[in-house]
């Protein structure tokens, strides 16, 4: 009977106790690494906020339209704080991963290995999207101003098209970087863009025939009343 009780209760508890004693140092290391990660992350955030403010990141993000976009999405924090938080978050995540690895659990190790390999792709994809957004805004605004100054009535539409095209291109590149349905997305993008161009060609060709004719006549024959003003 005593032997039976030993086998059923005492031995497993003893074994669990031994494993727990073996595991405790790893757990303590993991907790310590986690705490260090948090402290380092917060310190880094404080330093980076000052650095980004010094180099005028907030002014740049204001000018490039990033702030406006963030505000549309309900984010009111300045870009310097957001980016500092992002870097601090990356540090904390990295230390959390190290902490989990310190636990020496096979399953976690495997998942972490895959996750770690994937992180650079996420970062690059984020940079591509951000760059695409800034470039799209810049080109969209340049096109808008040029079209308005040329007297093009649909300046806003052209500008938005340029913005969306550049952003779509950037998104496609980012998704390809993440390995999400790369072939499908490229094909979809090509079909959408091709379709848009075709649709506009048809619309202009059929609907705007008269407008195009009048415009060309004015431009080529010089029918448009011009100013003789010398501005300077």
């Amino acid at each position: 009977m005593g032997n039976f009780i030993d086998k059923i209760f005492v031995m497993p508890i003893q074994s669990f106790g031994e494993k727990l004693i073996k595991f405790l140092p790893d757990l303590l290391s993991a907790v310590l690494i986690l705490v260090v990660g948090f402290v380092l992350g917060l310190l880094l955030k404080a330093v980076l906020v000052r650095f980004f403010r010094t180099i005028g990141l907030d002014r740049f993000s204001q000018r490039s339209g990033v702030v406006a976009a963030l505000q549309k999405g309900g984010i009111r924090e300045p870009a310097s704080l957001l980016l500092s938080k992002l870097f601090a978050g990356l540090v904390i995540i990295s230390f959390s991963i190290l902490a989990m690895r310190a636990l020496k659990l096979v399953v976690i190790d495997d998942v972490l290995a895959r996750f770690l390999l994937y992180i650079p792709n996420v970062f690059i994809a984020g940079v591509i999207i951000l760059f695409g957004y800034i470039l799209g805004n810049f080109l969209g605004r340049a096109v808008l101003i040029a079209a308005v100054n040329a007297g093009v009535k649909v300046s806003g539409l052209i500008s938005r098209l340029v913005k969306v095209t550049v952003f779509l291109l950037a998104t496609t590149m980012a998704l390809e970087q993440l390995g999400i349905g790369s072939g499908t997305i490229v094909v979809a993008f090509a079909i959408i863009l091709g379709g848009l161009v075709f649709a506009f060609s048809l619309a202009f060709g059929l609907g705007g025939k008269e407008i195009a004719k009048t415009y060309l006549e004015k431009r080529i024959k010089g029918d448009e009343a011009k100013d003789d003003i010398s501005y300077l």
Binding site: R141, L144, I145, A147, V148, N149, G151, K153, S155, G156, S159, E224, A225, K226, D227, D228, I229
Partner: peptide
């Protein structure tokens, strides 16, 4: 004498206000 296309200037102003006003 200098000829001026007043209508065109005003149209350009209105277009600018509509499209660039936000900026």
């Amino acid at each position: 004498p200098i000829s001026v296309n007043l209508e065109r200037m005003i149209e350009m102003f209105r277009l600018g206000l509509r499209e660039l006003g936000g900026m």
